[in-house]
């Protein structure tokens, strides 16, 4: 940004632009983490349903298939 548009370190406008930049840079990461975490949880919870089936149900179906 142009040096003449923004004052020195003590200029409150500098602080405002700094805060705004940090906020807007952080937002994509926050959203990616939120959506990615939600997707990961959905895939993980559906995967657990296959890996840990009901043992009682398995025994009954194994008997029925013999």
């Amino acid at each position: 940004m142009c040096k003449t548009a923004v004052g020195g370190p003590g200029d409150p406008l500098s602080a405002g632009i700094n805060a705004s930049i940090f906020f807007m840079m952080a937002m994509p990461f926050v959203l990616f983490a939120a959506v990615g975490g939600w997707l990961a949880y959905m895939f993980w919870s559906s995967g657990r349903a296959v890996q840990h089936p009901n043992p009682d149900l398995l025994s009954a179906e194994r008997e029925a298939s013999r």
């Binding site: 409150p12 406008l13 405002g16 632009i17 705004s20 930049i21 906020f23 807007m24």
Partner: peptide, 12 residues
Amino acid sequence: VGAYLVFRVGSV
């Protein structure tokens, strides 16, 4: 919100 922050934080 970023635009709002520029003015709010940047105002005395």
